[in-house]
């Protein structure tokens, strides 16, 4: 039968993205546990990767995935993140089976599809699988760009269908306090 034209070509992405995995091996340092698994620069390679790996809900607690623009490490210390922050979406344990995986996929699709007006401010996204609260963070480069960060937050809420408020935290505040005690610079 006929193959749709869209299935015969590769669709390039605006950016090349890296998938990272945080291993949580107690014998290693935090940095050593951050593993850059692979990169992808077209839609087809993203889907091939996505279908190959476990969903966040299947990961053991203490593990993370991160999807960041190539060259940006998923850590505060990276030059691209030093002046930045994150929109934080917290999920209760009961949401692990209903919302975690679809929120994570929708966040990645927003990122790689450049669906924010201010996509240039996006560094990447992280999903933390934890005991009490799972977290998804969308990291941006410059906390002083109010309009850009607010646009990103509103787009996230709208696309994921989140009804409650979400907050934006500076990395330098999160560094010194646990995320639940960190003040929000912005809220939408």
């Amino acid at each position: 039968g006929e193959i749709p034209l869209d299935f015969t070509i590769k669709h390039p992405l605006q950016n090349t993205w890296s998938l990272w995995f945080y291993d949580n091996d107690r014998t290693k340092t935090w940095e050593e546990n951050q593993i850059e698994l692979t990169t992808f620069d077209c839609v087809e390679d993203f889907w091939r990767l996505y279908h190959h790996i476990k969903q966040p809900s299947e990961l053991r607690q203490g593990h993370d995935y991160a999807v960041f623009k190539q060259g940006i490490r998923p850590m505060w210390e990276d030059d691209a993140n030093k002046m930045g922050g994150r929109w934080l979406i917290s999920l209760e344990k009961k949401q692990r089976n209903s919302d975690l995986d679809r929120f994570w996929l929708d966040v990645i699709l927003l990122l790689i599809g450049e669906n924010f007006d201010h996509s240039e401010e996006i560094c990447g996204a992280v999903v933390n699988v934890r005991g009490k609260l799972d977290k998804i963070g969308v990291w941006t480069a410059d906390t002083s760009k109010q309009q850009a960060n607010l646009e990103i937050g509103r787009k996230l809420k709208e696309s994921l269908g989140i009804h409650g408020k979400i907050g934006f935290q500076l990395h330098r505040d999160t560094m010194v306090k646990h995320s639940s005690a960190t003040k929000n610079l912005y809220t939408v």
């Binding site: 299935f7 669709h11 839609v43 699709l109």
Partner: peptide, 18 residues
């Protein structure tokens, strides 16, 4: 400049591409 933008629905439609 120009930017390559894909909406969610289009990305999802390519999910089953061989």
């Amino acid at each position: 400049g120009t930017r390559i933008v894909y909406e969610r629905s289009y990305l999802m439609s390519l999910r089953q591409s061989p």
